[in-house]
Amino acid sequence: MLLTPIRLLGRNVLDILQKFGGMTLLLSQILSESRSIFRDRMLVIEQMHLVGVRSLPLVCITSLFTGAVSSWQAAYQFEGFVSLSYLGGATSLAIFIELGPVLTAFVMAGRIGSSIAAELGTMKVTEQIDALESLAISPIRYLAMPRFWAAFLMLPLLTVFADVIGVFGAYIVANNLLDISTTMFFDSVQYFFEVRNIFGGLAKAFAFGATVAIVGCFVGLRTYGGAEGVGRSTIEAFVMSAALILINDYIMATLIF
């Protein structure tokens, strides 16, 4: 009776450790296969296009409305306590440090991480991964390595777009609905601005990009069980990525800020 919950806990802990070990091993294999990154640059560029350029519209919409809502909510919380002249600084700081990198990473986890898991998972269950191996082509080099570098490099770039558009969204609301002048808003942004905050946010974005790609590849490459298995992997990739993004976010926030 007493053993069952302990056994369950033990099994879950073992499962988590096994996944963590598997992802660390995959990362080391990807880094080892990265020796051929120049030779395989076209594969990386193709993935950068898919990961970066194609994600841009979604990132723009998400960050525009995130900036807008953070401006509105901040104004609501400032009411009666803090002058609205600080609104630009407060919202831009939140966007640079937290909202920009984290929400962009979530968008990428949903759009790219799940898509990597589904694509590699389908290839696994239809023996396409075995077919690559049979041609003496390493699936890690051919499939995982380009996706890893594409996500690692493009997520910070998308975060820069998210930061700029997010601040613009905040400004639109502040200027049009809260009667804060352009000068007042951007003076406040400038007053609170520190380069350290931008770099801190971008450092997070690099880590999140790596996380999204590693999780997507790891989950995809161990898919089993046909179409149902692919569906399961797609969900698992998003859930794992989201959890790891938040854990990483906390660890990095304590280290950087």
Partner: peptide, 23 residues
Amino acid sequence: SKNELYAIRRRIGMLFQNAALFD
């Protein structure tokens, strides 16, 4: 090793049950 195995595989072709063509 993986490299030795890959050298062997280059001498072997395989037709998979459902062909396993890259979609």
